[in-house]
């Protein structure tokens, strides 16, 4: 004869078993999702790396230098192109005092 408590236990076991199966199924699903997300991140990172690498390739110093010299007609900065205001003041003062010719 099967008593109510036994039946209850059978039900509980069944319920737990089904729940466990469901949880396991859910976790597997989530793991797959996570793996897909990770792969998507890697793919996106790789795409980003490609774009950055392309940018770096286009910004190669020798390329920029060639464009600056040939296309834009720029020239290298010489020391005489840059003046320190204090030095300029000193030179003017020296000139005024007749120290420099």
């Amino acid at each position: 004869m099967i008593r109510y408590p036994s039946l209850l236990i059978v039900f509980v076991i069944l319920f737990v078993a089904i729940s466990l199966y469901q949880i396991k199924h859910l976790i597997t699903k989530k793991e797959i999702e996570l793996s897909q997300i990770k792969n998507n991140i890697n793919d996106a990172q790789s795409d980003l790396n490609i774009l950055n690498a392309e940018l770096s390739y286009l910004k190669r110093p020798e390329r920029i230098e060639k464009i600056a010299l040939d296309k834009l007609g720029l020239k290298e900065v010489l020391p005489t192109d840059i003046w320190n205001l204090q030095d300029l003041a000193n030179v003017t003062e020296n000139l005024n005092n007749g120290e420099l010719k």
């Binding site: 890697n42 793919d43 790396n49 950055n52 690498a53 770096s56």
Partner: peptide, 19 residues
């Protein structure tokens, strides 16, 4: 995971990994 990048002091890529 992708191998890390190598940058110069101005954050310009010197080495990177792509698929």
């Amino acid at each position: 995971s992708l191998r890390g990048n190598i940058y110069d002091r101005n954050k310009k890529i010197l080495a990177t990994t792509i698929n």
